[in-house]
């Protein structure tokens, strides 16, 4: 086999070369991410890391101060330890970096689980707690989802962003995953394969086990959201002018979503917990 080329005058020349060398992939989707690979780009991004308390307060907003380091961490361009050290060094009290470091720890946790179970990350770790057997979930993603043509402006915009940028904010990943698994009742594995194909930071462990967390096959209950939650954390970006406002698939309280989506679920799965438990402290090391 020939060695592949290493010298390029600029990024355009590199991309043109790769479009020829990897023509099969480019034929499917030839978008290029704005996120540049390499240690220099990684260090520049790391230098922009903000204060821990700001991160903690606003990380769930899609335009919040997330680090955008996930692609570099996933490929080992930056180690978790050095990102942690950089975050702690910015603080007078190391505790102020705790939430951010906790999110880094999610990734370490997924990697440790992966080392232990290997390809078992593709199997349901536990049964679904949704009241539906796994046979009731479709094997494949419906075409309208992969085409970004569901008619739901928020979901379709998330799909376009996945294809065009290879990056989704962690909250968007949770909404999209919940929509696929719970609203459309598709096996989480189909969604996980889809994300792995496109996310620049796609890592089988973090990705699959997070999908399992949403699905409830690696958590005590399924993750769902509602329009109010999406509207708040996108700051109205999609809801403001949405023709479906007030009558979309996500309207109503969390209790209503649960009753509608999981009529056969054991009530104790949701017992006594209010909606705040869905949006807080459940990030999966995705930034």
């Amino acid at each position: 086999m020939m060695d592949l080329k290493r010298d390029f005058a600029n990024r355009d020349e590199l991309i043109a070369y790769l479009r020829d060398e990897f023509a099969e992939a480019a034929a499917v989707d030839d978008h290029v991410s704005e996120t540049r690979g390499g240690r220099a780009a990684a260090e520049a991004q790391l230098a922009k890391l903000g204060k821990g308390k700001d991160y903690e307060a606003s990380r769930n907003y899609v335009h919040g101060p997330v680090s955008r380091l996930s692609a570099y961490i996933r490929h080992g361009v930056l180690s978790l330890a050095e990102v942690r050290d950089a975050a702690v060094a910015k603080e007078r009290l190391s505790e102020d970096a705790e939430k951010f470091v906790n999110e880094l720890a999610w990734r370490d946790y997924w990697q440790r689980v992966y080392a232990e179970i290997g390809d078992g990350i593709w199997d349901d770790r536990e049964p679904y707690k949704t009241g539906w057997d796994r046979e009731r979930y479709a094997d494949q993603l419906p075409d309208d989802i992969t085409a970004g043509d569901t008619g739901l402006p928020c979901i379709d915009a998330f799909v376009r962003a996945l294809y065009e940028t290879g990056y989704l904010h962690h909250h968007v990943r949770m909404w999209l995953a919940a929509y696929v698994v719970h609203w459309r009742r598709v096996k989480w594995q189909a969604g996980a394969r889809w994300f792995l194909s496109h996310l620049i930071d796609g890592d089988p462990a973090s990705n699959n086990l997070s999908w399992q967390w949403v699905a409830s096959t690696f958590s005590a209950k399924p993750y769902v959201f509602n329009r109010e939650n999406l509207e708040k954390y996108t700051e109205g970006e999609y809801c403001k002018e949405c023709p479906l406002y007030g009558r979309c698939d996500f309207e109503g309280s969390y209790e209503r979503q649960q009753r509608r989506l999981f009529p056969n679920a054991d009530p104790s799965v949701f017992g006594g917990e209010d909606r705040r438990s869905f949006g807080r402290g459940r990030g999966r090391g995705r930034r």
Binding site: A25, D29, V32, G38
Partner: peptide
Amino acid sequence: KISFKRIVFIYECLLELPVTIR
């Protein structure tokens, strides 16, 4: 089904390393 954008990112990382790419 690794997408083209993922390949580009990885390739850019490789260009900063002293490696033969195959």
